[in-house]
């Protein structure tokens, strides 16, 4: 992409109401998914029926926003037609792009819907220029959502060597593994985030107040105990407290959320096209607040004004934020 071009704000919506809130708050594009296993946010009560998706796309288009549909899980053997039919529906409803991770599905979509714009999901974990160029040349992928393991310098290096747009996460929950390759949740619950569509599925989560402390269990494993008054984290294993040798604490990652608002100028400079906000599982109140704040930040950036950062801390897991791998400081 040409440096200096306006950045696109890609915002999450778990429900039609959240999609409307995102568009009203200034989203350039909204990403969302169907209420089934084709969607990596396959949570109870969340997502869009076919009818709701068609209406949501029409609503967004009336207001000048795009809809990108995430079909970002990996089709189960023997059930490919469910994923393939979802691509057909997106094309029929006029989706602006589909976000795919699976090679078979990319091949199927590019062959049967040559006019449908393809984005490569973060789940595909394409983290170098060679891998990205393969997807671009083979399937005509137009945009790559980069894994959250790259530094700004690495992103800039990738952008110099590829013929596609890049999209990076700017705010929200952090999944610290190279995307699509984490088996922690599958191990504890028997359900795969990559195929069934949910890390730490709610059906396997149990919260209990024990003597003022909040104890969270996933699939029967106690993963953290938080004292009264301390911020609570999500029940994801990567943010759990474990004993390893003499060490007891957060083995993989602290319960913090990504907030890279302060890095918007550097990301633009690195040639990024779009900034993505995580949180399709969150409410429309979150969507509205975060989208409004980041749209203001992008407007400030475009106008050369300083960007206000850190104003969304109260909404984040652990009530603490990090710039993640963009400024890498691994344990």
């Amino acid at each position: 992409m040409t440096v200096g071009q306006a950045l696109e704000l890609v915002c999450p919506a778990g429900t039609p109401a959240a999609l409307r809130a995102a568009v009203e708050a200034g989203a350039h594009a909204v990403y969302c998914g169907f209420n089934d296993e084709t969607n990596a946010r396959n949570f109870p009560g969340l997502n869009f029926s076919r009818e709701e998706m068609a209406e949501a796309i029409a609503f967004a288009h009336r207001h000048g926003a795009k809809v990108l549909v995430a079909l970002n899980t990996f089709p189960r053997a023997g059930a490919f037609s469910q994923w393939s039919a979802a691509v057909d529906d997106c094309a029929r409803f006029g989706a602006d792009a589909v976000i795919l991770a699976d090679l078979g599905l990319l091949e199927d979509a590019s062959r049967r819907h040559p006019g449908l714009r393809l984005h490569l999901s973060v789940q595909a974990a394409a983290a170098n220029a060679d891998a990205i160029n393969f997807y671009v040349r083979t399937f005509g992928v137009k945009r790559i959502v980069l894994p959250r393991v790259l530094t700004v310098q690495e992103i800039a290096a990738i952008n110099r060597e590829i013929e596609a747009e890049t999209e990076v996460f700017i705010f929200g929950g952090l999944c610290v593994m190279a995307e699509g390759r984490c088996s922690l949740s599958s191990y504890a619950t028997g359900k795969s985030p990559n195929m069934n569509g949910a890390c730490s599925p709610a059906s396997h989560v149990e919260y209990r107040e024990e003597g003022g402390a909040l104890v969270s269990r996933l699939g029967g494993f106690a993963i953290h105990r938080v004292a009264a008054g301390q911020p609570a984290p999500y029940p994801t294993l990567c943010k759990g407290v474990f004993e390893a040798g003499d060490y007891k604490g957060h083995v993989f990652e602290d319960p913090v959320s990504l907030d890279a608002a302060a890095l918007i100028p550097q990301l633009a400079e690195a040639g990024v096209t779009a900034l993505k906000i995580e949180g399709r599982q969150r409410s429309r109140a979150y969507t509205e607040a975060v989208v409004r704040s980041f749209r203001r930040a992008l407007n400030d950036h475009a106008a050369g004004r300083p960007i206000a950062a850190g104003e969304l801390r109260a909404l984040t897991e652990g009530q603490q934020t990090t710039a993640g791998a963009y400024r890498k400081t691994w344990r």
Partner: peptide, 8 residues
């Protein structure tokens, strides 16, 4: 937001 109230 329900998650934010849960975190806090």
């Amino acid at each position: 937001d329900g998650d934010a109230l849960f975190f806090s």
